[in-house]
């Protein structure tokens, strides 16, 4: 088959241009990810790595006791589930899901407001104002929530001043709630921007058409606006949900003993306990869980959108 030369050469130039970022990602992303997978099947004893493939790390993650070869399958299966790792992972997923839900639900009206009610000339100012806090030191922002929620923090001081309480509240710091508030704050712009972009793409005459066809504003929102904004909502959900699972700063600073998450454990395994293989197994388990949940969410959303049409 004959192929056009110039079109071919433009393709080749495009491919050539794309190869440096691609090679970079292969070298620094694909290969390292592959290395984690390998490591999770190895074991480490202090400084020496044992490269025989084994499922020991995963057994440790999933089962309270080592697999007993002599015992029956059922006896072994019974030990599954009740490990500190799974508790942390469960808590992490709970926190991530909760943070995602809170962030996206709180963010949607803001994105809607900017897209539909702010005049075009001021939209970028609003977006600018929303992105600024995101670009300020993450560590310091997290720490400042500690100042706000702390024993002598802003909340307690103001409540005491007003006279609503006598003793500082203690349930607002060093627990999961504090972690959730802080993360919801940190990921707010991530949720607003994709939803805003999706809303901006909606042809305004569609909304008028819907009202013209006899729907109320509210019904129009649910029948037209929301389905069309769904791609943005999905993007927002993923872009909040996935990274929150990997955050260890917020739980470390805000979570107290009961608010530690899987990322803290991964960090501990790698940096304090020097058990990279177990850390790798944990990281992979966490990543796979997140991916599965994300895929299920995307699938549910598609099904929901399809059911409507």
């Amino acid at each position: 088959m004959k192929r056009p030369r110039l079109a071919m050469s433009e393709r080749r130039r495009a491919a050539l241009l794309l190869s440096p970022p691609f090679l970079y990602a292969v070298l620094l992303l694909a290969l390292p990810l592959f290395a984690i997978v390998l490591f999770s099947f190895w074991t480490q004893d202090f400084m020496t790595i044992d490269r025989t493939a084994t499922l020991d790390n995963y057994r440790e993650v999933f089962a309270t006791e080592k697999w007993v070869p002599g015992a029956g399958l059922w006896e072994n299966l019974q030990t599954i589930g009740n490990t500190i790792y799974l508790t942390l992972l469960g808590r992490s997923l709970y926190v991530s899901l909760f943070v995602t839900a809170v962030t996206v639900i709180l963010a949607f009206p803001v994105a809607y407001f900017i897209s539909f009610h702010v005049s075009p000339s001021r939209k970028s100012l609003w977006l600018f104002l929303i992105t600024i806090p995101f670009w300020t030191s993450y560590l310091i922002r997290v720490f400042l929530w500690k100042v706000i929620l702390g024993y002598n923090g802003v909340v307690n001081a103001s409540l005491i001043n007003i006279g609503l309480i006598d003793e500082p509240l203690t349930f607002i710091l060093y627990n999961i709630n504090a972690v959730i508030i802080t993360l919801a704050h940190a990921f707010a712009p991530f949720a607003i921007l994709p939803i805003f972009v999706a809303l901006e793409k909606i042809d305004r005459s569609l909304l008028e058409a819907s009202q013209d066809l006899g729907e109320t504003r509210l019904r129009t929102f649910f029948r037209v606006t929301l389905p069309l904004a769904m791609p943005g909502v999905v993007a927002a959900v993923l872009i909040v949900f996935i990274p929150t699972i990997g955050d260890y700063v917020t739980p470390a600073l805000m979570g107290g003993a009961g608010g530690q998450l899987i990322a803290n454990m991964i960090q501990t395994q790698f940096l304090a306990l020097n058990n990279a293989p177990l850390g790798a197994a944990l990281a992979l388990t966490a990543m796979v869980s997140v991916t599965i949940i994300a895929l299920v969410f995307i699938w549910l959303n598609r099904k929901w959108l399809r059911a409507r049409t």
């Binding site: 996935i242 790698f270 990281a283």
Partner: peptide, 12 residues
């Protein structure tokens, strides 16, 4: 991608 994954994979 969770940043911790990038971090640990490169560390390894």
């Amino acid at each position: 991608l969770p940043e911790i994954i990038v971090a640990v994979s490169l560390l390894i």
